[in-house]
């Protein structure tokens, strides 16, 4: 397994910081601007990237990321174009952890092995399939292993002991922690992760827990880290900045830069 996530968590731990990991949909609003956006995220403090592939039927996503998918698809984004974009990102940032978050049909349609091999070639570190629960993880496990791509699983609020143990046994890279039900979006803020789930994940030796869904303000970041999360994902809030500034690229990058710097600052100790 590649070590980029492990290295990032080690480096951040040494500084007593949490990870700030923005999410964007690849190709939103168009391939070229998407690359500019991703560079802006990284240059302003993103510790890793969570990248979505646009899909016609994103059942785990709220309206903001649904619209991002549509924009990307309308801009002609394809699976192969996504991989080419990742290849460019990888070339610029050799040590940056890059994870994918996408829907199973895109993978199955390409052929699971072919998809993972292409992902490895593009420099992907981890893949989380939004609609493949642990129970169905056999679908991709062998391919993930042979391509040295970390399989990532979701620890949901109602996850029982057996599920958390499975996540520890089968997951790598990071664990996607949810503190609430529902879909992606800031319409409902993140809850506070129950310290119990994080402690249990740690006790079982699961990969570091990163909290997602509904993170949009610096206090959400501080709350998550205070309760034991090792980092946060921030998707819809970032995608909304893109949505509000389509066709105004310089304004878009300014806004994104300021937002990412503020959110990243919240991952640092207050009196550090």
């Amino acid at each position: 397994m590649r070590e980029r996530y492990a290295n990032m968590f080690k480096r951040l731990e040494a500084k007593n910081e949490g990870a700030f990991i923005p999410f964007v949909t690849l190709g939103d609003p168009d391939p070229e601007t998407s690359l500019t956006i991703i560079r802006t995220l990284v240059e302003n403090g993103a510790d890793a990237l969570e990248l979505g592939f646009p899909f016609s039927d994103p059942i785990a996503d709220g309206p903001t990321i649904q619209k991002a998918s549509l924009r990307a698809l309308q801009a002609g984004m394809t699976v192969e174009a996504c991989f080419r974009l990742i290849t460019d990102v990888r070339a610029s940032y050799p040590e940056l952890p890059v994870g994918l978050l996408l829907y199973a049909n895109l993978v199955v349609h390409q052929g699971v092995e072919a998809f993972y091999a292409r992902a490895e070639q593009a420099g992907v570190d981890a893949i989380l399939l939004a609609d493949v629960p642990l129970l169905e993880a056999d679908l991709v496990e062998a391919a993930a292993q042979s391509c040295r791509i970390a399989p990532v699983y979701i620890a949901a609020p109602q996850a029982g002991q057996d599920i958390l143990r499975e996540i520890a046994r089968r997951g790598s890279g990071y664990t996607y922690l949810l503190s609430r039900g529902g879909v992606t979006g800031t319409e409902t803020s993140a809850g506070v992760p129950t310290g119990d789930i994080i402690r249990q994940l740690e006790a079982y030796g699961a990969p570091p827990a990163v909290l997602g869904f509904g993170i949009s303000r610096p206090e959400h970041v501080r709350d998550a880290l205070r309760h034991g999360a090792k980092g946060v994902f921030c998707g819809s809030a970032i995608v909304r900045i893109i949505e509000e500034n389509v066709n105004r690229t310089s304004r878009l990058t300014e806004k994104l830069a300021a937002y990412v710097r503020a959110m990243k600052a919240a991952t640092r100790p207050l009196d550090g």
């Binding site: 059942i59 199973a104 609609d131 629960p133 679908l139 949901a156």
Partner: peptide
């Protein structure tokens, strides 16, 4: 494909939903 008798018909079927929905 895993061929769990209960949730598969040959290779078809399964439970391809977000982990969140699995308890339900």
């Amino acid at each position: 494909m895993n061929r769990d008798k209960k949730r598969y018909f040959g290779a078809y079927g399964g439970m391809f939903v977000p982990e969140l929905l699995m308890p339900a």
